[in-house]
């Protein structure tokens, strides 16, 4: 049981702890790794885009050097790059590159967030807010439901023996495969808009919370329960004054996993119906029309959103645990 708990929690468990509210000392190596990734990215752009640049140049009657007996199409990417260094600048400025350069993505992110008004269809903030709404609604319901089920499991042995194994097994099932069906079924009974997405988001954030909270509510040791017993505390007081506070350090990591999963669920839920708005819709329309820069910017917007959400939960975690005296 414990290893499965870790499996669910491991995905994003410490995502925020290293990022928000930590010392600057740790930043050096992080920046080095980020710089390394950017360098690899920039180096990969010319070979990825050279074919398109070369055929454009050939059509414009610029001499393109290709290896003996090969055409531009059949030539290797690196061979083209090495033989035509003059074409490299063109690989960084294409409209629909196979791999956009980091600065192109950054420029698109900037122009779609700062440029158009927030309500317009071109604004990435508009799309992000649609996805964010479904994410948060789903997360609240998923987390509350998970909390209630965890309490039921901890206080009822029958539920513990019969429901808990399903909660664990459900983590091994590709739940996202259900997403298109839930969206279409809810549409067919007249539920549209935010709710179908929120249902999937809730479903995904539900199980990490169940598993984490069950572990947390069980964490008080026998000696602590015995102490409450000597105080003549009833079950209700035992829950509010011992079990629930003791579960807090377990709750927050599950909430972090849950909110990240909730965002993924909301994005996936936007795929099958061809939703008009949302980050998932941006991904899908970008993939239909080959707008690679749009795909990458939507992806980064989703990543930033996930980081911010996890960061907020992490900040609440730090503040709450500090006040409760769990301080590190």
């Amino acid at each position: 049981m414990s290893d499965v708990t870790a499996a669910g929690a491991g995905v994003g468990r410490s995502a925020a702890t290293g990022w928000i509210g930590r010392r600057v000392v740790a930043l050096g190596p992080v920046l080095a790794v980020v710089a390394g990734i950017l360098a690899i990215w920039y180096a990969a752009v010319p070979p990825m885009n050279i074919h398109w640049a070369a055929s454009r140049a050939a059509r414009a009657d610029v001499a393109v050097s290709v290896p003996e007996g090969q055409s531009i199409r059949s030539a290797g990417a690196w061979a083209l790059v090495l033989r035509n260094p003059g074409l490299i600048p063109a690989t960084y400025t294409q409209d629909k590159p196979r791999l956009p350069a980091p600065h192109q993505v950054a420029a698109e992110l900037w122009s779609t967030t700062a440029g158009p008004p927030v309500t317009s269809n071109k604004s990435l903030i508009h799309h992000a807010s649609i996805t964010l709404g479904a994410t948060l609604l789903g997360f609240v319901f998923g987390a509350l439901g998970g909390l209630l089920l965890a309490v039921g499991i901890v206080y009822n042995r029958v539920m513990d023996a019969s429901v808990m194994p399903w909660a664990i097994a459900s983590q091994t099932i590709p739940i996202l495969a259900l997403a298109p069906m839930i969206v279409v079924v809810l549409n067919s009974i007249g539920v549209t808009g935010l709710v179908p997405k929120a249902v999937i988001a809730a479903y995904l954030s539900f199980f990490p919370v169940v598993v984490g909270m069950v572990k947390g509510l069980r964490s008080p040791s026998a000696i602590q329960s015995d102490l409450l017993h000597t105080y003549n505390a009833n079950g209700w007081q035992g829950f509010w004054k011992l079990r629930l506070p003791a579960a807090m350090p377990f709750l927050f990591p599950s909430l972090k996993v849950g909110i990240a999963a909730s965002l993924v669920g909301a994005i996936i839920a936007e795929l099958p119906t061809g939703a008009q708005g949302g980050l998932g819709a941006r991904l899908l329309s970008g993939s239909y029309y080959g707008q690679t820069i749009q795909i990458w910017s939507a992806l980064f917007a989703a990543a930033i959103l996930a980081a911010v959400l996890v960061g907020i939960v992490g900040a609440i975690q730090t503040a709450t645990l500090k006040r409760m005296g769990f301080g590190r």
Binding site: V11, G12, R13, S14, A15, G18, W19, A26, G28, P29, V30, L31, A32, V33, V34, I37, M48, R98, L176, K256, V257, A260, L263, V264, I267, I268, L279, L283, L284, G286, S287, G290, T292, I295, W296, A298, L299, A302, A303, A306, A307, V310
Partner: peptide, 28 residues
């Protein structure tokens, strides 16, 4: 040094909606 840098970045990316790279990779 690399290890200290990779852990936070890796953790950050592991929590990302990486599924979103699917349209890009299908294109490639």
């Amino acid at each position: 040094a690399l290890q200290r840098g990779i852990l936070p970045v890796g953790n950050f990316l592991a929590a990302m909606p990486i599924v979103g790279t699917a349209p890009i990779l299908v294109m490639w």
